[in-house]
């Protein structure tokens, strides 16, 4: 068990290096020249060259990659032997603007001049996490109730109705639901703000009425999956011997449900919750753009349209890292919650 976790932990940096290399390569060989895009239709080749030099974009690919990961040296190497070069690269003072990913520096944005990618990303992640957690929370609660109801009524007519109802809610595309609700609640009834985000004083957006509509609509997504999961895992548990024993020993139906069914059925839900949090970025592409939420998904889309590769690269790296870590945590969590599972 411990050995397994240690092995995973040791392996993780290698995965991250591979991920960073692939990401950097794709971003590096992207079409066109970021400096050229920045300067638009009327660019002067001399200025383009100067800006490229200033940003270190004229260096060889390997140097740029290593610089991206561990940071570029302050003085550009010139006239050195190979060994000196490596030492210079590894140990000399870092360039203040290119400290390297390992120091949490993902470089500068192409679009937002002079702004650190990390500064851009982290405030957005916080917004997405808030919205995602609220929506997921609502979705999980509704889904679990539906799933439990379906399982306990297995074989009756409303078992399939609940399950397919949950799936139906999840299949509703956000770009139909959003305009309809916005039309009804905002344009016609003027009850709720239609979009936007209000982070208030403490950076908490969950107390503003602006979160109600997006959270409500986004909670539909997980309902189907959670209902299905909850139903099947409840059924699995209901049919287990120890639940039958508990029942036969005269335990109240309520106690059986809460203590035995509930606890065991919750396990797979952890997986779903964990993975949903790791996929905040992709999940937010469309919805955050429609709702006007300054989250990570919207930043991804904006950066993509602006071909702001450093931001996209940083996001890819961060998502990969969080995915790896969340998975590790889920696996460890499983072993603690369910001693029958052994890993390795």
């Amino acid at each position: 068990m411990l050995a397994y976790i240690i092995r995973r932990l040791v392996w993780t940096p290698f995965v991250l290096i591979a991920v960073s290399f692939i990401t950097f390569t794709v971003g590096h060989y992207g079409p066109g020249d970021p400096v050229q895009v920045l300067m638009g239709q009327k660019n002067d080749p001399e200025i383009v060259d100067r800006v490229r030099r200033e940003r270190g974009l004229d260096r060889p690919f390997w140097e740029q990659y290593v610089g991206y990961v561990i940071g570029a040296p302050k003085e550009q190497p010139a006239g050195m032997s190979a060994v000196e070069y490596v030492f210079h690269f590894a140990f000399s003072e870092r360039h203040p603007d290119r400290q390297g990913v390992i120091r949490g520096d993902f470089g500068e944005s192409y679009k937002f001049l002079g702004q650190k990618v990390s500064d851009l990303i982290f405030s957005r992640v916080w917004v997405s996490v808030q919205l995602g957690s609220v929506a997921l929370g609502v979705g999980v609660i509704i889904g679990m109730m539906l799933g439990l109801a379906a399982a306990l009524n297995q074989g009756r007519w409303f078992d399939p109705v609940i399950v397919s109802g949950g799936l139906f809610l999840s299949s509703l595309p956000v770009f139909i639901v959003q305009p309809l609700l916005a039309f009804l609640l905002s344009r016609q009834l003027h009850l709720l703000p239609s979009s936007g985000w209000d982070s208030g004083v403490l950076g908490l957006g969950i107390f503003s009425p602006k979160i109600i509509m997006p959270a409500l609509i986004l909670s539909l997504g997980p309902i189907g999956g959670i209902t299905r999961l909850m139903r099947s895992s409840t059924l699995e548990v209901v049919n287990q011997d120890y639940v039958r024993t508990a029942r036969s020993k005269g335990l109240g139906e309520r106690a059986v449900r809460i203590n035995h069914i509930g606890r065991n059925a919750v396990l797979p839900i952890f997986t779903v919750v964990g993975l949903s949090l790791a996929s905040l970025v992709e999940g937010g592409f469309i919805s955050e753009t429609l709702f006007g939420i300054p989250g990570i998904g919207r930043l991804a889309v904006e950066s993509f349209f602006a071909r702001d590769y450093p931001v996209i690269m940083a996001m890819t790296l961060l998502v990969a890292a969080s995915y790896i870590i969340v998975n590790l945590l889920i696996d460890i969590g499983y072993t603690f919650l369910d001693p029958r599972i052994t890993l390795g």
Partner: peptide
């Protein structure tokens, strides 16, 4: 300035 985007016409008609 609202920077977060969203549907302009809806926001206008909802007095946002």
């Amino acid at each position: 300035f609202l920077l977060a985007g969203g549907s302009a016409m809806t926001m206008y008609e909802n007095n946002e």
